[in-house]
Design a protein around this nucleic acid. Sequence first.
DNA 1: CAACATGATGGAAACGTTTCCAGGAAAGGC
DNA 2: GCCTTTCCTGGAAACGTTTCCATCATGTTG
Lengths: 348, 348
Amino acid sequence: MAGGRPATIKDVAAAAGVGIATVSRVFTGTGSVGAATRERVLAAARELDYRPSALGRGLKLRRAGGIGLIVPDVTDPFCAELIAGVLACARTLGEHVIVDAAHGDPAREAEIVERLVEQRVAGVIALPAGDAAAWRSAAGAGPGAGVVFADRALPGLPEIPAVLADDRAGVRTLTEYLAGLGHRRIAFLGGAAPGTPPGVRERAFRDTLDAVGVPADEDLIVAARPERDSAYGAAAGLLQRRGDVTAVLAAGHLLGEAAVLVARELDLRVPADVSIAMVDDVPWAELCDPPLTAVARPGHDIGYRACELLLRDRARRGRGGPVLLPAELMIRGSCGPPRTARGGGRSG
Amino acid sequence: MAGGRPATIKDVAAAAGVGIATVSRVFTGTGSVGAATRERVLAAARELDYRPSALGRGLKLRRAGGIGLIVPDVTDPFCAELIAGVLACARTLGEHVIVDAAHGDPAREAEIVERLVEQRVAGVIALPAGDAAAWRSAAGAGPGAGVVFADRALPGLPEIPAVLADDRAGVRTLTEYLAGLGHRRIAFLGGAAPGTPPGVRERAFRDTLDAVGVPADEDLIVAARPERDSAYGAAAGLLQRRGDVTAVLAAGHLLGEAAVLVARELDLRVPADVSIAMVDDVPWAELCDPPLTAVARPGHDIGYRACELLLRDRARRGRGGPVLLPAELMIRGSCGPPRTARGGGRSG
DNA sequence: CAACATGATGGAAACGTTTCCAGGAAAGGC
DNA sequence: GCCTTTCCTGGAAACGTTTCCATCATGTTG
């Protein structure tokens, strides 16, 4: 039907027998236009299937609109929740969202930011991979409204606002819960690699252990990256090496997955032989047998709030550090009192 | 640092002491520019932190670029895989992706399409919600390169190319597998509502039953929408009403989830009391106890291929019906031979 | 040395929009 | 009847880019 190039405002003006300024006024709603004229313009536009070009408008108004969203991986359930939150908020603001995945690679991330800046998006929301320097320069010179970090902040970049889950409180609650059940040998799966500074969750774990008077066992804090192979290796190593652990706190859902899988392979009953809990409440936590106790981090809310902060609450930005959203402990069936260990021995 | 408005090509030209045409040539790589001049321009651009505006370029070139991607729900694992596939392909083509979720609402979907058309994207990939008429007009008049459907096609729209999983073969294989294990009373969870035409999966199920000589029992083909509450209700109704079913084939991962949950609540052992299998291989299928047998549909490939079809293989489009990508049966532990039913009775 | 090919460069027009400005008509007050 | 106010309308400039065309300098060939 409409095979040729899309109709422009000029076409509509010509068809309606008016000037282009009038057509523009009809579509932007500004100024005043006679009722009869408006009708004629609308009819012509409908006839020609006219849609104002965001390019022309953006150029003239010096803002393209749209927001950029950079996540490590769209298939990660938590990231997906966060994306959904951003989408929901963007929708209320009439903005579209350009999504891309950096897969934890700072170079790739920088590439994406470059592209978004060229697109002249109104702002960028990111779960940053790293490279504080690149972000610093991007935030300064780059996208109009600026940058907001979600779920993760970068050390040494206090000037970039962030919306985070209150992991500290979440891990503290979970650790207290495990200790309260009677556990004394609790492993932490997902510590920092030797030489790198510990993350918030690890620090919270250590602090809480301290606070409740359980001595920390360095051998039970095992380093692992949140990737399937790293997580699996770490979990297997831990549970084989230390038959005496009675509880495992996994610092992320991939770590939790690994713990569950390894426990099953070693024929450990959950929670009779070992209790398992993790940070990140993902759908499979409920499907698991037994269902997994987890700290639910509000991915959707984080995304929504980050988007608000980026576009609406510009003024309120950067005041008083990052926005913290509460995490909730979902108690299910995977944790129980520790088995009564006699000499810490278990055959196998 | 660079607080003011972003530098334009004019600023760079002035700073480098050349004409804007020369700057443009340097950045587009067209034409010929002296080495010394090029260096001067590049230096000036770096100094001013200049990035060419996609708006200006798009306006001049009459194409904005970017592709629109409409899914029902970004948090659905299958959709997420598909998005990842599109992102991967778009990256190789240097395009960005605008993602939005329609949540199964045709009106919302139309709204999103409208917006994408205004953005003058190069094309749209969609898991369409419905409303063939709206899509017909959108495809005709709308986005430059057109529309490609992914994972789902709309009846009566053969002119819109589609990339689909070979669900027919997938369900056939799975049904044959269950029948081969000896099952005769196999339930199909996720049939069409009464009055609406059955989907591909349901037809494949019926046909295969026919082919292997198992009489179809209409009471075992239960209608359910792929939403948690609908799925749960249908699964509960089925397993309570018909204690004699020995296998359940769930037509989607949400249906499968419901089946697993209901079976657990009714204290049915899987697969001793009832075998469960589903379409869609999602991460939790492996985490389940026992791990769930499932038909793996290639979400990533579908997205990738749809994107290719949209932007690269334009010529090859629409030839010979939809592109079918193979689905693979992942045999795990959730299916076994039927229990030896005596009169179909089971207490409870 | 002249004619010419070649390469580097700048000016200007176009892309589709918004908006300022000015002009014209209608209406109201003296 | 004239001036002022109000409302509606069209022309034109600008937004940042690409690209056609013309210009000019340089090097090559006869």
